[in-house]
Amino acid sequence: MRSLTFEEVTVRFGSRRHGTVAVDRVDLAVPAGQVVGLVGESGSGKSTLARAAVGLVPLTSGRIHPHPRGGGPVQMVFQDPYSALDPRMTIGASIAEVARGRTDVAQFLEMVGLPAERAGVRPGALSGGQRQRVALARALAGRPEVIVADEITSALDVSIQGAVLNMVRDLQRRMGLTMLFISHNLAVVRYVSDIVAVMRQGKIVEYGPVSLLDEPQHEYTRELLDAVPRP
């Protein structure tokens, strides 16, 4: 397995003068085989950073290793399970497209806990949680060394969220995947991550082992923690 590193990465949208800087000289390392949880509010630049890692957003400056390109060793799972799968394609075809016929589609479906017989159904017949499993299976079919997961449980009901999180953690540990796990939900990030990075206004303001959530150093991290609802 390999690590994912961002070096001085800047992403700017629009022109130099009137544009906005979404990601501002970010240095971030996701060590091999570990899960880094990236938290921050919407607009903090965390999704832009994720899309940059897989080449969906061009870098203004800086470097990412491994180099972002289509079909590369980094695969991504998206937030909205309803938009992430082509409604016209069977889920088997969606997975096979990424696997490029090298392997058995059934194997990947079983990996995410779906019966292989379901390969012939279209996404319309699946629930949100099942779609998100298929999206994960598709990412795995690309034989990735690194997975970027962008808010993958935010659109799911709490009852389904738990099952998807369990599966993500189990797969990550079994396959030793390197993972950048993005969420605005601190409790979720705390549950799956080894390392936590806090992002605000395009910058990483705090970075450290997950235990930092017990004793945050940065004021903004404390503010985020205070806002977590407690029953």
């Binding site: 991504m76 497209e97 990424v98």
Partner: peptide, 13 residues
């Protein structure tokens, strides 16, 4: 603009 197109691009299609 949908994610499945982004996903296909990430997969190198």
């Amino acid at each position: 603009g949908r994610d499945f197109i982004a996903a296909a691009r990430v997969a190198g299609v």
